[in-house]
Design a protein around this nucleic acid. Structure first.
Lengths: 241, 241
DNA sequence: GAGTGGTCTAGACCACCTC
DNA sequence: AGGTGGTCTAGACCACTCA
């Protein structure tokens, strides 16, 4: 059988081989953004395979943002998204020691009320902790959750769940997402005390809003990172493999 | 014909309908991370369609990071990546006015040499500009490109290309990517002068390294953002649609 | 060995675009 | 009218997993 032979020869599925071949032409600059690719039927004869197999290759490249298709016209090389960055920000701070600071129900301040869409006198749960590196405080974290009366405040449970990920509480995990804002701020006296840094030292401040798919605000957090914590690292553009 | 009727009824392709149905079960929490989905053949009879159609739906959800599959076992609901964030950082600063500051070839400082993998006495092209909002400076930008002797320094061309995107020069657009580091810093006297801010004011500092797929360093940039510039905004988790 | 997903084929009809 | 991609079908063989 034709395809079996091809498959065995290199150990790679045919559609992966075609994908690699086309991708290489693009990263080498032989095919450039906006350019039209050969049609499916042309690729079928070029690679001596069926239409679905060719389409599988093209679909892969489409998902990766390298191609797009226009019905009736063909496939085109996409513009790379050099302005779209991604980064990991792991709230559990696995690489650090973290020190439990306080947990209690409080009357929220204005920024917290606004962030959680609270308009009445409802209280909120406030959890704060200090993140340490080799004995030095490098970050300080405050999290706020709406406190619905009647819900027992089970400290141990919250401690576990919240420290894994804010708002894993009582929401199916695909039912919410997080919006983050990153800014910088000079340490005030309170932060100076907590983080044992200079007053005025420049800190990264990271705001997070946990939002349900229905728009409901499920959580709010502020995190202050000293320069010892390190820099946030992000990537944009297409990285091979 | 069976499928034509189904397709016409809702105007949506069958595989999109199946995808939506499964996704809804997941966001509603009926199916949870780690759980096994019904097999392909079970879904074939449930939705009265062919295997490839069912597989197309599952593949979509796989690409979106909602499912993963294990040969011989089945499809499982994935863990949502609540720690993976994305954001846009458009270097052209379309929403701002930007003021050309200077462009010339200079002997690089140590950080620039390290960032561009320069070990000899080669010079680099330095481009700097100031970004303004309503007449006020809100950011300051420095970019460095390796300067290969013999290349004419065509100012107009560089100005255009670099201000669109650092390193669009002479590299096919899929041949490189960008690594970014975000930190905070106190304004020194020089930045105070350029940005007309207080000495010690907290700034966001953004380092960028433009890197070829072959690992070659193509460009380096530093950008200082005042608090007037605004906050960086990022998103994580699954957002519907 | 029975069931699962992974790959591949050879058809089909459709909507869209261009001449 | 003829070419393009979009959707869908009904087969096939394979490697993997688990009882």
């Amino acid at each position: 059988m034709k395809h079996t032979k091809k498959f065995m020869q290199s150990g790679e599925p045919v559609y992966i081989q075609i994908e690699a071949e086309l991708r290489s032409e693009i990263t080498r600059g032989e095919l450039n953004p906006g350019q039209l690719l050969p049609s499916e039927s042309a690729l079928m004869s070029r690679f001596d395979t069926s239409r679905e197999t060719v389409r599988r290759s093209l679909k892969e490249l489409e998902y990766k943002g390298i191609l797009y298709s226009r019905p009736g016209k063909g496939y085109f090389v996409a513009e790379p998204q050099h302005d779209l960055y991604s980064f990991y920000f792991d709230d559990s701070d696995k690489d650090f020691e973290s020190e439990f600071h306080s947990i209690n129900t409080v009357t929220p301040q204005e920024d917290v009320k606004a962030a959680l869409d609270i308009y009445d006198e409802k209280k909120v749960i406030k959890i704060s902790r200090i993140i340490m590196l080799r004995g030095d405080p490098v970050a300080y974290d405050e999290k706020y959750l709406p406190y619905d009366k009647g819900e027992p405040l089970v400290e141990a449970e919250i401690k576990y769940a919240v420290f894994q990920d804010l708002a894993t509480i009582k929401s199916p995990p695909f039912a919410f997402y997080t919006r983050m804002e990153i800014g910088s701020i000079n340490a005030d006296n309170e932060l100076k005390k907590i983080l044992k840094c200079e007053r005025g030292e420049s800190l990264l401040i990271i705001y997070r809003y946990i939002i349900g798919q229905d728009g409901k605000k499920l959580g709010y957090g502020k995190k202050f990172l000293t320069q010892k914590w390190g820099r946030l690292e992000a990537i944009s553009g297409y990285t091979e493999t």
